[in-house]
Every structure is written in C-alpha cells, then in structure tokens.
Nucleic acid binder design. Structure first.
Length: 437
DNA sequence: AAACACGACAACCGCCAGGCA
DNA sequence: GTGCCTGGCGGTTGTCGTGTT
C-alpha cells in the first residue's frame, strides 16, 4: 500500500484505550495509560514488528503486542493489520474473475457476511471482499445494472429448488433462491495450521529484533526483507481463522432471528452440509430451470436483486446503505407460523454432519470439529515441516530458495522481496518476550 | 495544469459474544 | 450471576491514485 504515512495525530479509539502505549515516536495518537497510541497507516517497521511478534507468540492476545514490543498500536489495530495484510496466506493479487463470480454467488446466499465469504475464498480477507463488493455495488448502481447477474439468480433459484428436494421446503422457497445448501462453517482441517507453521518460517533473527530498532527503520521496506520471498499458499491453505466466531450463531442469516432460525431447515445450509462443502458449484449447477424466479430477482431499477421475490424488500434501504440480500429481509415470511419447517436436528442433517463438518445447529460444534480436525492434521503437518524451523534458524537463505520456490510466487506484500537473511542485517538479542522499553 | 469525480483500499468505530475471574 | 477483558464482525470513513473534463 501506498499509505505509509508516519504522521498521525488523530485520537486513540475508545476501544483501544485499554492498551498501554509504550512507544513515543513523536507521532500523534492518543495517550493511553503509558503513552500514545498511533493511528492511521502502518509503516513497514510496524509491520515487521507485528509479524515478528505473531510469529513468535502466535495470534491472539493482541493487546499484549504493544506491551511486549513497544508497538504503539492497540490490540485491535494489530489484529486487523495482521488479518488483513500480514498473514502469509493472503493473496496479494487482484481479485480474479472466478473469485468475483464466487463472491457474487456467495453474497446472493449469505448477504453481507464478509467473514464467511472470506472463508470460502482462500487468501482473501473479509475486508477485501467487503471493499470489493462495495465498490462493485457502487459501480453497478451507478450504471443501473443489476447487482446479481441474471445467471446467478437463475442458478441460485435452481439450486434452491434443488434444495427443496432435500429439505422438503415449502413452495415459498421458490422466492428465496439464496436458500441453498452451503457449508458456511466449512473449516478445512488445515486451516489452524497456519500460524504454527509461520512460526517456523519467520527467522529467529527477526523474532529477536528489538522493536526499538525496527521502529527506526524507514518505511522503505523492511518488511519485504524480513519476510519470505514468496508465500506458502499451497502449504498453508488460507481460510477462515480458526475459532472464528460467527455472529448471530443462532442463525447465519443475520436478519433471521432466533425464532426463525429454529424453524428453517438451515441444516442443509450450514455447518453440516457436506454436500456443498467441496462442491460449491453445485449450488449453481442444478439442472432445474426456473426462469420465472430468475426474472423475479430484479427490481425494476435493476438495483437490488429481489432474490426472494418480495417486492417490499427491493426498495428502501438498499441504495443508501449496503444491504443484505433481500432474502435476509424476509424474516416475516420465513417466520410465519404457517410454515412448518423441519428441525435442524433432523436425522438427515445429523447424518450429513457426522461425515464431514460441524452440525448446523451449533457453532460450538463447528469449532470443536475444527479444533479436532486441526489437531490431527496439524500434528502430521507440522511433523512434516518441522525441520523448517531449524532450516530457517540455520540457513534461511537455503530454506527460502528450496522450500518456498514451489509456493505461490506472490509475496505477501506483492513484491518479490530479497531475503532479509541474504542481507543479514537484522539485529538480535532482544526477544519480544521481554519489554524492551 | 487545475479541478473534480471516482475507484480502490486501509483503517477505524461501534457493537456484540465468549471466556473468565 | 455479574462484570470485565478480549477478540470478531460489519459498517463507515479517510486517504491516495488515476482518469476525465
């Protein structure tokens, strides 16, 4: 990014007030109990500090970052920076057409569930998808084009009808093409590995680099130097972060309140729906043909896809505010007592869930499932890659040249960076275990 | 060349939920 | 049971680059 301004005089966010600022780099920022916290664009030096910290200590406990490193950033800021920019598994290339198509499809199903959408798009962050979508919406809106391409609506409605067969949905679902089976809780077994491996991949030298030193480094690009020349995307399948909590666990459709969630056969759509877990295209590949419902997916302005066919939802909020797909505005419809829907605990769903993924009815189950799977997979994975640590510590250069070559050629920061180790300039001796201020 | 509009993106903010003492 | 802390999520804002007038 070009945003590397060091100046930031803005005030500290309220939610960061609990963080203790140690660094006083003369920059702006509010003053926490122990000093100022910076806001605004991150510098390369700050990135490097954060990367080093996370590499060594792992994700989580973000508020400890600045306490241990002297980084004048609040925990939330650190977390976001890491998640959106520093995670090694992030793609640093523009969103492809395929990805765009998938985003559109996912949005038709999920609405503004960016985090969940990100989970379906390896290497993409919720923020990235959100930005992409918002931009796209604006563009479409300005052009008077439908947000959802006709084929998406058609496919979605087809998929929805197909789901009828599975869930014995009432005929009303013809108006809810986005009600299609999808495993929104998919937690690939490997996803929890990321950090452990990263810990092995970042150089010990960096880990021991004093924050005070790093902070003095100009933003000209320390980070590219301290990070591997390429990312192990293939080794580290990016996905939703481990116990990523899903908001409104009672229903993955935000607008569907608990009561509704209880009656809607989301089981076919949620955690346990393995039928879609690995075959997302299934959703749109149904042989069903329902042109009518597709045509209903657009309002007269071509603005908001009325996927649910409810005209009332197509009007108001959409243009001025990023809205959920109209599906999610149809609470009343689904919530109607006249629509006896199967329970989430139906045997069918349970059967599905028993195979591959967590049960739709419980986020906890999803997490537990994920943890279990990861635990197993991580062990073997780490065993396979364990020597990477030693390699790095001993000879980073060799490691990168030999191990990273086969990986995604795009570096985390979108450039081909020279190895930090090739330059061998990092200081050592100070660990982030100890506050260095 | 300057002004403006727009896109793209990073970062912040407020809210909320889970964990824990 | 309650309150605090931490972290996640979605919405919003701010900034910069680029194209157009």
């Amino acid at each position: 990014m070009s945003m590397t301004s060091e100046s930031d005089e803005s005030t500290m966010p309220k939610n960061c007030i609990d963080s203790l600022a140690v660094e006083d780099d003369g920059g702006g920022g509010d003053v926490g109990p122990n000093g100022p916290l910076k806001k605004g664009p991150w510098t390369s030096a700050e990135d490097a500090i954060l990367v080093a910290y996370v590499t060594k200590h792992g994700e989580g406990n973000w508020n400890a970052v600045h306490k241990r490193t002297g980084l004048a950033r609040c925990g939330k800021s650190c977390r976001l920076r890491w998640a959106n920019h520093l995670r090694p598994d992030l793609k640093k290339v523009p969103i492809s057409q395929e990805e765009e198509d998938l985003i559109v499809k996912l949005h038709a199903k999920m609405g503004n569930k960016w985090a969940r959408m990100a989970a379906e798009l390896p290497g993409r962050t919720d923020n990235e998808i959100k930005n992409f979508w918002n931009t796209r919406i604006k563009r479409k809106e300005r052009a008077g084009l439908p947000i959802y391409p006709p084929e998406i609506c058609t496919e979605a409605s087809n998929g929805n009808q197909q789901s009828d067969n599975l869930s014995a949905f009432p005929s009303a679902d013809a108006h809810y093409p986005d009600f299609i089976p999808v495993n929104n809780f998919e937690i690939p077994p490997i996803e929890f590995k990321n950090f452990e491996l990263h810990q092995k991949l970042y150089p010990q030298a960096l880990l021991d680099t004093p924050a005070s030193c790093l902070l003095d480094i100009p933003s000209s690009g320390l980070l590219p130097q301290v990070l591997p020349p390429s990312y192990p995307i293939k080794l580290l399948p990016p996905t939703v972060h481990p116990p990523k909590r899903l908001r409104g666990s009672q229903s993955s459709f935000p607008s569907l309140n608990a009561g509704i969630a209880n009656v809607i056969p989301f089981g076919s759509q949620y955690p346990d729906d393995v039928s879609v877990q690995n075959t997302q295209s299934l959703i749109y590949s149904s042989s069903y043909d329902n042109p009518n419902s597709a045509s209903n997916s657009y309002d007269h302005m071509g603005r908001h896809a009325v996927l649910n066919g409810n005209p009332s939802s197509s009007e108001p909020a959409w243009p001025t505010k990023m809205e959920l797909p109209s599906l999610q505005t149809q609470v009343g419809y689904w919530g109607s007592p006249s629509s006896p829907l199967p329970s989430l605990e139906s045997p069918t769903q349970n059967n599905l869930s028993s195979n591959l993924s967590p049960r739709s009815s419980g986020l906890l189950d999803a997490v537990l499932y994920g943890s279990h799977t990861v635990k197993n997979s991580t062990n073997s994975f780490l065993q396979q890659n364990w020597n990477a640590v030693d390699i790095i510590d001993a000879s980073s250069q060799d490691f990168y040249e030999t191990k990273w070559e086969a990986c995604e050629p795009i570096s985390p920061f979108g450039r081909s960076s020279s190895s930090l180790f090739s330059e061998g300039t990092l200081m050592s001796g100070i660990s982030f275990d100890e506050p260095n201020m």
